[in-house]
Structure formats: structure tokens, C-alpha cells
């Protein structure tokens, strides 16, 4: 137990320090809220409140105005409604460029033009009245494929009016990066940014500089289970995202339909992987690849990972006997907190 004179001494030192305008003991600032249909939490360690909630919310606003399919006036909605295409802003250009790159690197498993199929399966902005039949899927597949997108200067063009894009699979990761960059621009070097389970961290927890622990959630049986932690990792300066088919699904005749649609078949992914956690230098990369790993299956996922040494992954999957097991890429072990 501290003796009173200790406290007094601490108070005096604090006063002296502030009078001299010397750096004080850094504090923890935590901003939480709701955005993009989910929750976010920004935690940073600094000696002053360099960033406040208003600034974070305004970043989300500018991201939504560009990337949200839920806003009819957003840039992406205007692209989807257009005949030929539109002029992009900075956000849309960043996201589309990176998506196209990942589309090529995953041989089409990650494809932002999957939106017409997402809508048909009832995972768009509203639930579908009925499930699509294979004829409808075949029809829609003619509108799907990122080769039907062309980038010319600032413009994003489509080869057919029916081509529509949905960047929900990557936008959260991108948003995490945008906020992280904003914090760094304010001179903040110790932070954790989390948007809907996608995370980027830098530095440590001040004043002790302890590493930031990140729990990897166990896929739960239902949409409503409180998250349980399956493993704890610490990633230093980098990003981690998780894609799971376990949270967003709809029931159809007792079958769970995953919200992740295979752009090649047009049908919801029914793979053995139920959760893919990816660690990468930035969140747009991690988020851009996690759905593709899920869709690729265990062997396909490891094939993608072999060509990306900067990325490590942890996969939870269902074995043929129904039991749940996990596996990880070789480099993932170094992140695990024992």
C-alpha cells in the first residue's frame, strides 16, 4: 500500500513537470463507436488527446460517401447504377486498385464484381424474397468478373451496364489503414485500430510498452454466442483480420448459406474452412485476402500463402467427421502468445 507522502510527492512532480512543459506520463485514449454497420475501437497511447471521436467519425463519413453500398448517393452506388462508369475519388481508387491486384493474385477468388450474386443470394442491402435458381445464377455470372472493369486515369469503367461492385470484403481493412495513417500523421506511434474485428497495431501499450494482445475468436455455433477466444497473438507493427462464414449466414431448408459467394460458381462457399485469420503488414492486404483463403479451401489457401511470404494465416476448419480443427502457416507461430 502506498504511503500518503508518496502520493504527495507524485503530485508535486506532476506539477513541476507540467510547469516546465515536459512530457508527462502517457495516457490511454480510447474512442469507440459504431460505423459501417458494426463497431469500432481506436486505442492510442499519448500524452495528449491528439485525435478525438469527431475526427474518427468524419473519416468514416468520407469513407461511406465513397464505398458504402448502403448509401444510394455514394460513389460506389453511383458506379453500380451507371451505364459506363464514373470518376473515382481517392478512397475508391485505392480500394479498387488493390482489389484488382488481389483478384489477379488469387486467380479470381477475391472479386469485387460479385455484387449481383451477393444480392441475388440475399446478402446485399436487403434480404431476397426467394433463393435464385441455377438459370438465374448463370445469367448473373455474365456480369461477374473483374476483367469486366477497366481503369483509365481517374475513371472506373465497366464493359457492361450490369457490372456492379461491392468492396465490403476489403473496405473495413482499408478503413483501418486510413485511420491508422491518420493517427500516425498526428505523431501517434502506439495504437490499436479495430473496425468490426479487423485490427492494426503499432508499438506497445505505454507507459510500460507491453505488447498488445489480440484474441482470435472461436467460430461459434450461432450468430449470438458471446465471442470466446481460441488463441491470443501479438503482431507488433502490422494488421490482422478474420473472415468467417460463421457469423453472417442465412438459413435455407436447414442449410446454412455463407455470405461469401464463390465468384466462379456463383454459389455460396461451402468449404471446410470456417474462419481465416490473416496477419499482414497492412489491413487492406489482410482483409483483401482473408475471404479468398476461405473460398480456396485448405490446400488452395496454403498455395496462395506460399507466394506471399509477407502474409501468415491461421485457419479453423471443419473436418469431414464434423469436428473442428485448426492449422496455420509456418510463420504464424511467432505471433502466438503462449
Amino acid at each position: 500500500m502506498k504511503k500518503p507522502w508518496h502520493r504527495l510527492a507524485a503530485g508535486v512532480i506532476g506539477l513541476v513537470l507540467s510547469a516546465l512543459n515536459l512530457p508527462e506520463v502517457p495516457e490511454t485514449y480510447r474512442i469507440t463507436g459504431e460505423a459501417q454497420g458494426t463497431t469500432y475501437a481506436v486505442t492510442y497511447y499519448a500524452n495528449r488527446e491528439w485525435v478525438d471521436r469527431q475526427q474518427i467519425d468524419s473519416i468514416f463519413k468520407s469513407l461511406d460517401a465513397s464505398l458504402s453500398i448502403y448509401q444510394s448517393g455514394s460513389l460506389i452506388s453511383r458506379f453500380n447504377a451507371s451505364e459506363k462508369g464514373i470518376e473515382m475519388d481517392k478512397h475508391l481508387m485505392n480500394v479498387v486498385n488493390r482489389s484488382m491486384q488481389i483478384y489477379r493474385e488469387t486467380r479470381g477468388l477475391s472479386d469485387i464484381t460479385v455484387y449481383p450474386l451477393v444480392r441475388a443470394w440475399g446478402f446485399g442491402t436487403k434480404a431476397a424474397d426467394a433463393l435464385p435458381d441455377s438459370a438465374a445464377i448463370r445469367r448473373l455470372l455474365t456480369c461477374v468478373g473483374s476483367d469486366k472493369l477497366k481503369i483509365s486515369h481517374q475513371n472506373l469503367l465497366k464493359t457492361s451496364p450490369c457490372v456492379q461492385i461491392d468492396v465490403n470484403g476489403i473496405a473495413q481493412g482499408y478503413s483501418v489503414d486510413v485511420i491508422a495513417d491518420f493517427l500516425e500523421g498526428r505523431g501517434i506511434g502506439n495504437y490499436m485500430v479495430e473496425v468490426g474485428g479487423e485490427i492494426r497495431t503499432k508499438g506497445g501499450k505505454l507507459p510500460g510498452n507491453e505488447p498488445m494482445n489480440i484474441g482470435i475468436e472461436t467460430p461459434s455455433a450461432t450468430e449470438f454466442d458471446a465471442p470466446a477466444i481460441r488463441a491470443v497473438i501479438t503482431i507488433g507493427d502490422g494488421a490482422v483480420t478474420t473472415s468467417g462464414s460463421y457469423r453472417n449466414f442465412r438459413e435455407s431448408g436447414g442449410l446454412r448459406l455463407s455470405h461469401i459467394i464463390d465468384p466462379q460458381t456463383g454459389f455460396p462457399v461451402q468449404r471446410e474452412i470456417i474462419s481465416a485469420t490473416v496477419v499482414a503488414p497492412d489491413a487492406i492486404t489482410a482483409d483483401g485476402f482473408d475471404n479468398a483463403l476461405l473460398a480456396a479451401g485448405i490446400d488452395g489457401a496454403f498455395e496462395i500463402l506460399r507466394t506471399h511470404p509477407e502474409m501468415q494465416a491461421y485457419l479453423i476448419y471443419k473436418k469431414t467427421d464434423g469436428t473442428v480443427a485448426d492449422t496455420a502457416s509456418a510463420g504464424f507461430g511467432k505471433y502466438l502468445v503462449p
Binding site: T38, T39, G215, I216, A226, P227, S243, Y246, N248, S275
Partner: peptide
């Protein structure tokens, strides 16, 4: 859903499939 032992007490963040806002404390 019940909000049971908030895992953030043990860890600083949790990575998982996106939780829709509505599942946290509000009725679904």
C-alpha cells in the same frame, strides 16, 4: 444476447468475423 465476460478484459482486441451492430445488446 447476453454480454458475458467481455474478452477485452484479457486481450486488447479481438479479431473475428464482423459482428453486426445489432447483435450487441439490441434485439435481433
Amino acid at each position: 444476447p447476453e454480454i458475458t465476460n467481455n474478452p477485452k478484459g484479457v486481450v486488447d482486441g479481438v479479431t473475428g468475423a464482423t459482428i453486426a451492430v445489432t447483435t450487441q445488446g439490441k434485439g435481433v
